[in-house]
């Protein structure tokens, strides 16, 4: 007996290329569950991805139209896709290095424009595919292959950054919070405008092994131990919140959507001319 949601995947390519215990597969799994529960037709979903392990979540596995772009540029490509195919759901899935490092500018500008795409940023703390180098999401003082003496930089709080940049939906969950995350994916897919979820995800191979968390489950247990729901923030002192993962919905609001605004302009101009 096989998983009934494998119908959404290019099954001839399975099992996935992900390492044992990697969180990318959990994101794929939850994405499929969310699509199924929303009764979306995969032919109406266009996946756009960048470079890195988490970009492999939809490409090649999710069986819909897929644009696997250059490193960091998925949101820019997705912008072109959405403008010309506004009736389709456009989803970007990529990593912390891809979307908040090399592609950070596209991320905040797409949020500012409020273009109707859903972005799942899979944050595994490092550049996993290239061997675990420090990323803009690596915690302070953490040892990576390019911070052997500890990370001298501070990480972005990406979900808060995207909320501040203007997105209409921004949340953070981890691959441990499967029910919350599945619900958030459904909310983001249904949200008109730029909807963003930062997903903390385990990379046992390139991150875990350097910090003494060798198995996927070890990192999941850390997620469980270190997460604080945004609703409960007041119960903690600032000191207690240090090194905690704040999970929950950072923002949900409504603003005019970019492609609709463009369409309104066209309608007006064409009526006049």
């Amino acid at each position: 007996m096989q998983h009934h949601l494998l119908k959404y995947l290019r099954t001839e390519l399975l099992p996935t290329a992900f390492c044992t215990g990697c969180g990318c597969g959990t994101v794929l799994n939850l994405f499929c569950h969310a699509i199924d529960e929303l009764k979306l037709d995969p032919d109406d979903i266009i996946s756009v991805t960048g470079i890195g392990c988490s970009s492999w979540i939809p490409s090649p596995y999710f069986a819909g139209d897929t644009l696997h772009t250059t490193h960091g540029r998925s949101i820019a490509f997705a912008t072109g896709v959405k403008v010309m195919k506004p009736e389709k759901k456009v989803v970007v899935i990529a990593g912390d290095g891809d979307l908040s490092g090399i592609g950070g500018n596209h991320l905040i500008h797409a949020a500012r424009r409020n273009i109707d795409i859903t972005v799942l940023l899979v944050n595994n703390y490092v550049y996993g595919m290239t061997g675990g180098q420090v990323s803009p999401a690596t915690p302070y003082e953490t040892s990576t292959t390019t911070t052997p003496y500890g990370n001298p930089e501070h990480p972005f709080e990406i979900a808060e950054l995207v909320a501040a940049a203007g997105s209409v939906y921004s949340a953070r969950w981890t691959t441990y919070h499967i029910f919350h995350l599945k619900k958030a994916i459904k909310e983001a897919m249904n949200k008109k405008g730029f909807a963003f979820i930062e997903i903390f995800s385990q990379c046992p191979t390139s991150y875990g092994r350097r910090v003494g968390l060798r198995e996927g489950i070890d990192i999941l247990k850390e997620f469980k131990k270190n997460s604080v729901n945004i609703k409960n923030l007041k119960k903690f002192t600032e000191e207690e919140l240090e090194n905690k993962i704040v999970v929950g919905k950072m923002i949900e609001r409504s603003r005019p959507e970019f492609v609709e605004s463009l369409q309104d302009v066209n309608k007006k101009v064409m009526e006049e001319t």
Binding site: V48, L67, G80, V83, M84, H106
Partner: peptide
């Protein structure tokens, strides 16, 4: 990037 994306969407 947006140009290329738009082409695959019919532009």
């Amino acid at each position: 990037g947006a140009v290329i994306g738009s082409v695959w969407a019919g532009g």
